[in-house]
């Protein structure tokens, strides 16, 4: 069919763009490395300087892959939440799931003593931080899940999520008040967001977690399409709403917890990328929208990372200073043009 072919073409184009962005991300950084040396390193041939090889393998490569996976994870969970709640403004940061993960991280860092210095963790502290994020995200997800049985109105549920987000933020502020200055410092640095938080050693585990979450998301494509008609139509099509919701929450929880723990609370990617994907592909059909969203998320995250490292020797721009600049205009564009955009009608 026509639409299917269009979907494949978009995916192909996005894959090429991602490839180019990966190369760019490997090329640029605080240390200038000639393109030839980068290529040689990737091919497994040695380079003139051992330090270059080290920088590429230990810093730039994991950062690249992390950005790709985080972008995919945040966008996929954003898309799922938007469809399940039939609300174009749903997103793990708005529903309070990210703040839940942040709270877990804060507890682990400030109380548990998981001391970190801008991205490079000590392993024990590192594990406690991830664990904290999982607990925090699951806790909020549990609350949202219970609330979703009581509050049938999706918008009200969203507002409840925002309120929960506020409560967790204030708990975090209280924790900060009672914490040591180093703890607060490392928490603030983490809170700025950074794709450099995953070391090469950690990368396989991180990738595994994200891929698991993404697989659940892909398995949900069929019920997500049915949910475009609203829950009562979906039920009539044989969808078990409760099961689908639970699976969606599991996937979102895994994806949000992993990205938040490793890279900090990253705003706007989950909210904006599904819209970018819908606008470009011109469809709400998850058969093509889900893969396109995942790939677009990767491309956007890689672009953000590239912008962060562009100053080169001057240092790194915090990730959360870049994502709103890309994300917010998209959301505003979508809101202004909502009468003209198909998927709103």
């Amino acid at each position: 069919m026509k639409a299917e072919r269009k979907g494949y073409i978009y995916c192909l184009v996005l894959a090429i763009i991602i490839g180019i962005l990966i190369m760019a991300n490997l090329l640029f950084g605080s240390v200038e490395i000639p393109p030839k040396a980068v290529l040689n390193t990737l091919m497994g041939n040695g380079t003139e300087k051992a330090s270059w090889e080290f920088i590429i393998w230990e810093s730039r490569f994991p950062q690249c892959i992390t950005a790709m996976l985080c972008g995919a994870a945040l966008s996929a969970s954003g898309l799922m939440l938007q469809t399940v709640f039939n609300n174009p403004l749903a997103d793990s940061s708005i529903l309070g799931i990210s703040s839940g993960a942040s709270l877990g991280v804060a507890v682990a860092m400030l109380i548990g003593g998981g001391s970190i210095a801008a991205g490079s963790f000590v392993l024990s502290g590192f594990l406690s931080v991830i664990f904290g994020a999982f607990i925090g995200a699951s806790l909020i997800l549990g609350i949202i899940l219970i609330l979703s049985h009581v509050i049938k109105n999706s918008i009200m549920l969203l507002i409840a999520g925002i309120m929960i987000g506020y409560v967790t933020s204030s708990v975090i502020s209280l924790l900060n008040f009672f914490s040591t200055s180093e703890g607060v410092h490392s928490y603030i640095i983490w809170g700025m967001g950074n794709f450099g938080g995953v070391s090469l050693k950690m990368l396989p585990y991180f990738s595994l977690i994200i891929v698991c979450g993404l697989i659940i998301a892909i398995l949900l494509i069929k019920p997500l399409n049915a949910l475009l008609l609203g829950t009562r139509y979906a039920e009539n099509l044989g969808i078990n709403i409760r099961n689908v919701r639970n699976l969606m929450f599991l996937s979102t929880g895994i994806l949000t917890a992993a990205t938040t723990a490793f890279c900090g609370p990253i705003a706007f990617i989950g909210l904006a990328v599904p819209h970018i994907a819908r606008l470009f592909s011109g469809t709400s059909n998850h058969n093509s929208l889900m893969p396109i969203t995942i790939l677009t998320g990767s491309a956007v995250a890689l672009t953000c990372n590239l912008l962060c490292i562009l100053p080169g020797e001057l240092g790194i721009i915090p990730l959360n200073a870049v994502t709103p600049i890309i994300g917010a205009p998209v959301i505003i564009y979508v809101i202004i043009n909502q009468r003209k955009i198909q998927y709103f009608n």
């Binding site: 475009l228 008609l229 139509y233 819908r278 709400s284 059909n285 709103f344």
Partner: peptide, 12 residues
């Protein structure tokens, strides 16, 4: 069933 519920399928 055919309902009067709002759908969100304008993009299909």
């Amino acid at each position: 069933v055919v309902l009067t519920d709002r759908t969100y399928a304008g993009g299909l």
